[in-house]
Design a protein around this nucleic acid. Structure first.
Length: 512
DNA sequence: TTCCGACAGTGGGGTCGCAAT
DNA sequence: ATTGCGACCCCACTATCGGAA
């Protein structure tokens, strides 16, 4: 298949807003793919590279290359070239990769170049990624969409399922079962604003500690243990403590879901930055493990002794977990039967926060494990802080925000009467707010020559955030975690905004 | 007819590791 | 040694489509 065909369909998919039409377009293309094209075409149209990331980013791809007049590239040629590209390493590799990318872009038409750019930067913005590709695949093969979706979640990969379906037909779906050693996409949670609200929605539920670490799925098959992240990357080699802990459990075959986190000598959890840094260390794992040891803490069991537990209610899965994993290696929890327990549950959350944890996750006891989905039966609750900050500048948006000032630079007052930037945010704005702030900020602009529009520091905005973290980038030495806009405060003047001093005082835990 | 679940899009900060300077 | 860049951890929120109620 020609890359041009694929690039054109991607363009068409992007141009329509109707999901049903996107699905039909993808289905038609999948149906036309030859057997050898399938493992390439499917991931490409779901916006992903079979090779994973290639060490080629926006910088390299932005170098202009004259496009070819006629389309000649086939998807298989492109795939082969990208495979070679991924193998280039060592000194001079950056230049070599740049050269290969240049060759590829030079052989591509303008439309193909656009598509390749999106693919290689991981920003195929066509309004159709995994979920829509799954529906398209189902339509192309006549398989029930729910069955295809489930197979993809259990295989952890759309491409594997697509290959089997398109070459062997619907019967191949039965092969995709939960298997020890093959990771499945983890279940995710929605947000609720309070524990009471979450309980009202879920009824009988468990309120569990939410630890601020790295999500892990631990597979043990006899003496072999593998540890996977939320995106199914294998990080076994970086976490010898987790392997050791899994081997000390009594069961010999299981799949567990949990969090890896580092506790300090005082027993309190270390900051996310410290845990993530440790888990990210690959070079000298044993030295890293000495200074920042991590512990696995589990909250769910997906498989025990080859029994697939995914479709059991959470209460039964947890009973299996409790039989296998001793209490100190499980998250703390409180059981709730109904709204009458709200007070107790709120107290549990308060105690969890007092122990230094992030918040809680409220889970319906009757819910199955919805692999790969953000099910409504898990609700996370975290405390939210707010500040009044001053807009120092704004950046022009991309995509559907093109032509709108989007990303705000946020400042707090300093002792000398100026402002210290604490970070940026683009979250929480409605289209109407984007419209309004684009107008208003341009009135306040003092420099609008680049992509950052600097403004007079006069506009006050109320910001929600999850906490403070250390920063080497910003002048106060701290930045806001997950900052988002709540509303503009035109009733406030910049001198009413919060100060760096009060912010630091409110977060003694960061120690700045 | 209205409501709501699922998805995609729009980017945020930090850390690590590698290559280039 | 330092800097730049890419990969991958953590993530919130809004708009939209289309099926459920």
């Amino acid at each position: 298949m020609l890359l041009a065909r694929l690039a054109h369909v991607s363009q068409e998919v992007a141009a329509t807003s109707a999901r049903s039409r996107k699905i039909a377009l993808l289905a038609e293309l999948f149906g036309d793919a030859e057997a050898d094209d399938v493992p390439i075409v499917i991931p490409y149209l779901a916006g992903r590279l079979p090779q994973g990331r290639l060490g080629v980013g926006w910088k390299v791809l932005s170098r202009p290359v004259a496009p070819a007049a006629e389309p000649t590239l086939t998807v298989r040629e492109v795939d082969a070239l990208l495979t070679d590209l991924g193998k280039v390493s060592g000194p001079g590799s950056q230049a070599e990769r740049g050269r290969l990318v240049g060759d590829l872009m030079g052989a591509a038409t303008k439309e193909e170049q656009r598509f390749l750019f999106g693919l290689l930067t991981g920003e195929v913005r066509q309004g159709a990624l995994d979920a829509v590709a799954v529906e398209g695949l189902a339509q192309a093969t006549g398989a029930p969409p729910a069955d295809v979706r489930r197979a993809v979640m259990l295989a952890g990969s759309l491409q594997t399922v697509a290959q089997a379906l398109l070459t062997e037909g619907t019967a191949a779906l039965d092969r995709f079962r939960l298997t020890v050693g093959r990771p499945v996409l983890p279940m995710l949670a929605h947000t609720a604003s309070s524990v009471t609200e979450a309980i009202d929605k879920l009824g009988a539920c468990a309120v569990e500690e939410k630890l601020d670490g790295i999500r892990v799925q631990v597979h043990r098959d006899g003496d072999a243990v593998r540890v996977y992240t939320r995106t199914l990357d294998d990080i076994t080699d970086r976490l010898p403590e987790v392997t050791g802990a899994a081997l000390r459990l009594r069961g010999r075959r299981f799949v567990l879901d949990g969090e890896v986190i580092s506790f300090g000598e005082d027993g309190r959890p270390r900051s996310f930055q410290e845990t993530a840094g440790r888990v990210g260390s690959r070079v000298d794992v044993h030295t890293a493990a000495k200074s920042i040891p991590v512990s696995p803490v589990f909250f769910d069991a997906l498989s025990v002794d080859d029994r697939d537990l995914l479709d059991l209610p959470f209460s039964e899965r947890h009973a299996e977990l409790a039989a296998l994993v001793p209490e100190p290696m499980r998250v703390r929890r409180a059981l709730v039967t109904g709204p009458e327990d709200a007070g107790m549950a709120e107290a549990f959350m308060a105690a969890t926060l007092a122990r230094g944890h992030e918040g809680v996750v409220v889970k319906a006891l009757d819910a199955v494990y919805s692999a790969g989905r953000r099910g409504a039966s898990w609700l996370k609750v975290k405390p939210v802080h707010t500040l009044d900050l001053v807009v120092l500048a704004a950046e022009w948006g991309h995509g559907r925000r093109t032509g709108k000032l989007s990303n705000l630079h946020l400042g707090a007052r300093t002792a000398d009467g100026g402002f210290a930037m604490l970070g940026k945010t683009f979250k929480g704005m409605t289209d109407a707010m984007l419209e309004w702030q684009t107008e208003r900020l341009q009135e306040l602009a003092v420099d609008s020559s680049g992509y950052v529009v600097t403004v007079r520091p006069e506009l006050v905005v109320e910001i929600a955030y999850d906490g403070l973290q250390r920063s080497t980038r910003y002048p106060a030495g701290v930045t806001l975690r997950f900052a988002r806009v709540l509303r503009y405060r035109e009733d406030k003047r910049p001198e009413d905004a919060d100060t760096v001093e009060t912010l630091l005082a409110a977060h003694p835990e960061v120690g700045v």
